[in-house]
């Protein structure tokens, strides 16, 4: 018992002050592309180092890149239209309490791992009233990762149908947005919106936990307006 208390004391307080403060990202972090010369589709981008080497864009340190409409995924110049808030009715319903159900539909487990991380003490998703639940019947929103393999299509549809109305769908990662690295394989659909309608797209391969958090809070209108 004492051991546990001593250890607890040693470990200290670890939750970051986000969104009041955004922790710095290391120099090699590949965030939202800026200085985009030709159009770059954030939903297809795998955020690999070489992609920027061709000179079409540079990676910034900005982690924010969730959008509400598929067209907004195409970046030009320095800006993109980040996700807007839900409409008033939805905001009233979900603004302070959002229950999500996650379905992995063929991802590599990278995106799932980063979603999982939003739960740990450092990010502490639950302080925003957002929670992952075990059953679609208890969920307000569906978080989808993976390109939707043929083998998961039915299960995904059934999960979606099992959720009560109104419902939100969030596609996390390149796979769920466009098929990602598996785009074009005969075993997959190229993204979640080929099966269910999507309300929020969070790009990345995988997106950083803060990118996911930013997307969720943006949708719920929980971020400072000036951002």
């Amino acid at each position: 018992m004492w051991q546990i208390l001593i250890n607890r004391f040693k470990q200290g307080y670890r939750t970051i002050a986000y969104p009041k403060q955004v922790p710095g990202f290391p120099g090699r972090y590949r965030g939202r592309p800026v200085d985009v010369k030709g159009p770059v589709n954030l939903g297809e981008l795998l955020f690999n180092e070489e992609a920027a080497a061709e000179g079409c864009f540079t990676y910034s340190k900005d982690h924010r890149m969730a959008v509400s409409n598929k067209e907004d995924l195409v970046a030009q110049g320095d800006e993109i239209r980040l996700a807007g808030a839900l409409n008033d009715k939805m905001k009233r319903l979900f603004g302070r309490s959002l229950k999500l159900r996650q379905v992995c539909a063929g991802g590599c487990n990278g995106c799932e791992a980063e979603i999982q991380v939003t739960n740990i003490v450092v990010f502490d998703l639950s302080r925003f009233g957002i929670q992952f639940v075990a059953s679609p019947r208890h969920a307000d929103g569906l978080v989808i990762t993976g390109p939707v393999t043929k083998n998961m299509e039915l299960a995904l549809k059934k999960t979606y149908e099992a959720m009560p109305h109104p419902k939100i769908v969030i596609a996390v990662g390149s796979c769920a947005i466009s098929g990602g690295p598996f785009r074009g394989s005969t075993e997959v659909r190229n993204g979640a919106d080929s099966v269910v309608p999507v309300d929020l797209y969070i790009p990345g391969c995988p997106p950083h936990p803060l990118t996911i958090l930013d997307g969720l809070l943006r949708m719920l209108d929980r971020l400072e307006k000036k951002q």
Partner: peptide, 17 residues
């Protein structure tokens, strides 16, 4: 098998990059 994305097959069809 739910995660089957056809990776081995893809490897035969796509560029090394």
């Amino acid at each position: 098998g739910y995660q089957h994305r056809g990776i081995e097959k893809m490897m035969e069809e796509i560029s090394l990059e």
